[in-house]
Design a protein around this nucleic acid. Sequence first.
DNA 1: GACCAGGTCCTTG
DNA 2: CAAGGACATGGT
Length: 202
Amino acid sequence: MSESSSIKVQHIVRSLAGHYGEIDWWPGDTDEVMIGAILTQQTRWENVERALLELRGKELNCMRSLYAAEKKDIEEAIRCTGFFRIKAQRLQSLAAHVSESYGSVDRMNHVPTGKLRDGLLSVKGIGDETADSILCFGFSRTSFVIDAYTERIVRCIGIKDERQELKILFEKVLAGDPKVYRQTHAHIVEYAKEFCLKKEVR
DNA sequence: GACCAGGTCCTTG
DNA sequence: CAAGGACATGGT
């Protein structure tokens, strides 16, 4: 990664922070962040919130109960997020991973970030973005989330790195503060939505 | 009616 | 490895 890329990223981070200030962006306890991370795949957040309400109503808003639940019940609750069959499967796969590998969500707190990440990535249906969202917003770890918006924004200012390099680049600039990681990702998404950065932007 | 959304996996060439 | 398709509902 070039020197100038770091400077550009620093500039983005600082400008967005100045513009938006501190925002409370991904509410919910660790269980609900994990659930939301899967439900929001290719889906608007407003629909995810509705599904979370449904899940709460059925007391299916935690890994422990999802593990034991009937898939039918999960599907019914999350229908409004689209891809509901595959997402119900993904939720149960994640719940199984948590229960079988760690025993509980709580026990995951002692696990080093790299190990946690590898474990999450071993779950079918959890890719880089979902894993990093869970780590960053659910467990307050310094694992930066690179999503489609991040890619589009950095493309606009002439950075053409792949996602893996972008992650390293941002993490170098952001140093070690998990709160800054969360804020920066939130700012990027808000900015991209506000200015309607669509797919064709390069 | 077409197009897109805070992705990921699987199949093809 | 890159590209293309599938997964599915809800909003513009």
